[in-house]
Each structure stands twice: as structure tokens, then as C-alpha cells.
Nucleic acid binder design. Structure first.
Length: 181
DNA sequence: CCCTGATTCGC
DNA sequence: GCGAATCAGG
């Protein structure tokens, strides 16, 4: 255990090469290595003769790898489009008479529809710490993006989406303890 | 403002 | 050789 984590040991250089080749940013690599800044990483990269690789195949939109199967996020708005999402089970439920009740109305939630400029949205590759992870669009299509706005400190969403994601969960007068697996 | 890599230059 | 400071973009 007498190996200084500092300096560019062969192993660290190797890891640097690997990560750099994989397309990670200098700051990301620096964080991965630890003990060095992104400047150090960039400096070393240049000294090693490496530099701007994996750029030709990127149409200025950063899409080096194939689309990742983003299926883990089933958080907030997970409604593809034209697809009826059936949550739980309603087939045999036989709707009582809730038709009479108002359904297509949203008295609460003054702005469910968040308008995020497309230029502000980001891909999963561009997503970083401090960025809103609110999914926008269909995760199965290549145009899937995340909000990308500045996220609240210690929160995965921006101020706007955090409000939607973390609702007081109160205004549910009707139905609330009908959950039975 | 956040970030990216590129370059310079004192150490 | 190293990397902070700086520069030039997005």
C-alpha cells in the first residue's frame, strides 16, 4: 500500500487513455481518477498525443454510442404516444360510475405542461450532476431528451419539475386506500 | 451561468 | 513533465 495516487502512473495513464477514448469529458475523467483537475487531464492528454477523437461521427449533437435502452425511468410522465398505458389493472375493475364525475379536468396543477426550449434539452450523454433529469418525450425514440435545466441543490429536478414530481400528495379526496395487490 | 477542449507558460 | 491560468467556443 505504498502507491501514491498522484502522478501519472502507467495504470492511471492507461485509464486515462481508455476513458478519453470512450469519449468521457476531461472533467469526468478527472473525477474518475481523483486527485487531478480537468486541466491536468487535458494537459496529459495533449502530451500523450491524444486529442479530439470521436468527433467525426458526431453531428454536433453528441451521439457517439448507440441509443441506450432507457427503460429504467418510469418516473413521471411515461406516456409514449398513441399508446394506452394501463397501470395496474382496470380491466376487471368495471368502472362503477365515475363517468359522472369530472375526470378531464385539472383544477389543481396550473401548469403541468412545461415548455422547455429544445435547445435547452439534453440527451442522456449530456446529462450531468446539477442537471434536471426530467424525461421529455418517448424513451424509445432517438429524440428522447431530458429537461437539462439547473437542478435544485440535492435534487434531481429543476425547480419547476421538482414541484410536479414532489406534489404534496394530498388533494386526493377520493380513492386513497384502495390499494390492494 | 454552466460547461467543453486548447494553449500558454512558470514551475 | 506537470498543471493552473487563460483562452475560445457552445
Amino acid at each position: 500500500m505504498s502507491d501514491q495516487s498522484n502522478t501519472w502512473s502507467d495504470e492511471r495513464v492507461e485509464l486515462l487513455r481508455k476513458l478519453w477514448t470512450e469519449g468521457l469529458s476531461a472533467s469526468q475523467i478527472a473525477a474518475e481518477l481523483g486527485g487531478v483537475t480537468r486541466n491536468a487531464v487535458i494537459g496529459k492528454v495533449h502530451r500523450l498525443g491524444l486529442s479530439g477523437r470521436a468527433k467525426s461521427a458526431a453531428p454536433a449533437a453528441s451521439r457517439p454510442r448507440k441509443a441506450a435502452p432507457t427503460r429504467s425511468l418510469s418516473h413521471p410522465m411515461a406516456q409514449p404516444s398513441g399508446q394506452t398505458v394501463v397501470r395496474g389493472n382496470t380491466a376487471l375493475a368495471a368502472a362503477p360510475e365515475l363517468e359522472t364525475e369530472a375526470v378531464p379536468q385539472q383544477q389543481f396543477q396550473p401548469q403541468e405542461e412545461v415548455v422547455v426550449p429544445l435547445s435547452e434539452r439534453v440527451t442522456i450523454m449530456e446529462l450531468r450532476e446539477a442537471m434536471c433529469r426530467w424525461p421529455m418525450g418517448d424513451p424509445t425514440t432517438p429524440d428522447f431528451r431530458f429537461c437539462g435545466a439547473r437542478s435544485l441543490l440535492g435534487m434531481p429536478y429543476c425547480a419547476h419539475h421538482a414541484r410536479i414530481a414532489y406534489q404534496p400528495a394530498a388533494d386526493r379526496r377520493r380513492e386513497k386506500k384502495v390499494m390492494r395487490s
